[in-house]
Write a protein that binds this DNA or RNA. Structure first.
Lengths: 157, 157
DNA sequence: ATGCACCTTGAACCGCGGTTTAAGTCAAGG
DNA sequence: CCTTGACTTAAACCGCGGTTCAAGGTGCAT
């Protein structure tokens, strides 16, 4: 009785800009509900396009599909989107800020590295000296700091 | 004849701050050469600590192990580290700058999202409307822009 | 000779987000 | 009737950087 055309998976995929295999995958993992069928084939109502858009945006914002599922469950629940959205965003923001800092450090290191003419790591300040002390895991991250715009070791070192 | 103690894989792992399984993995993929053995067990010269440190730093800078292998092959070649370092860093810098921009966009979106009280995506400006036009892949990325500090839709929309 | 810590191997497994493949089904058009 | 194109499924595969497991070997002290 609704005048909406039912869409095939191919049409949905084209309109939403995703692959059909992704849509089936989302259904497999419970992110989208299985639609009705006609002759064994999936038939979608246009509403699914909004859901796929939602998934795409949330994904771009850094959420994993598991987390997006939590958001969707929130939308469907009585309390609405707000609560899971706030708690997941709070948490994700911390991760993203860490990523941002790491990425900035990477960029700084690479900007020096592209000017580097060193023949070996030993003579290059981009690679600190190793071997004296035991390192705890993740120490390298601290090491990709570069002081100047140059990778030459200072004479005194 | 050298006075260096030969190290077991466990000692190397401890000093370098990596797992023994990672060291064996690096040897499997040709990133480290297989060391000499005593009674079937690997024995390393302290020099390997520098190589592991090099790998760690390069990894922190965003290089994949395949790329690090290229760098190491450069070190071992006549031309030295410089040439592969420059070309790989140039290339990686482009990727990292893109990542940086994406990460900043994610951060902006999340900062709005954590204040969001919307009950559903339809009423939330964080999620644009979908369904009218076919989208090309990757369009969602453009959509995670937020104008103000608020996710409420403007009345006129 | 017994235990213990450490080492060896190949193969399987992990998360993540899908894609690909093989083999088959279905509806429409010529 | 036969082809064409889009659909169906389960299962395998992809990159990435490892980790884990099972089964066994080595070397030293007790």
């Amino acid at each position: 009785m609704d005048g909406f055309p039912e869409l095939t998976i191919g049409e949905v995929a084209k309109r939403a800009g995703v692959a059909t295999s992704s849509i089936r995958y989302y259904e497999r993992i419970g992110l989208l509900e299985e639609p009705g069928r006609s002759g064994g084939q999936r038939r979608y109502e246009p509403e699914v396009l909004g859901k796929l858009g939602f998934i795409g945006v949330a994904q771009s914002a850094g959420f994993k599909l598991r987390e997006i599922k939590e958001l969707i469950d929130g939308v469907d629940s009585a309390d609405g989107l707000g609560a899971p959205m706030r708690s997941l965003s709070d948490q994700k923001l911390i991760e993203v800020e860490a990523l941002l800092e790491r990425t900035r450090a990477m960029k700084g290191w690479l900007e020096v590295a592209r000017e580097c003419g060193c023949a070996s790591p030993e003579e290059c300040a981009l690679f600190p000296e190793f071997g004296e002390e035991p390192l705890d895991a993740g120490t390298a991250l601290k090491m990709i700091r570069v002081d100047g715009g140059d990778c030459r070791r200072s004479p005194g070192e």
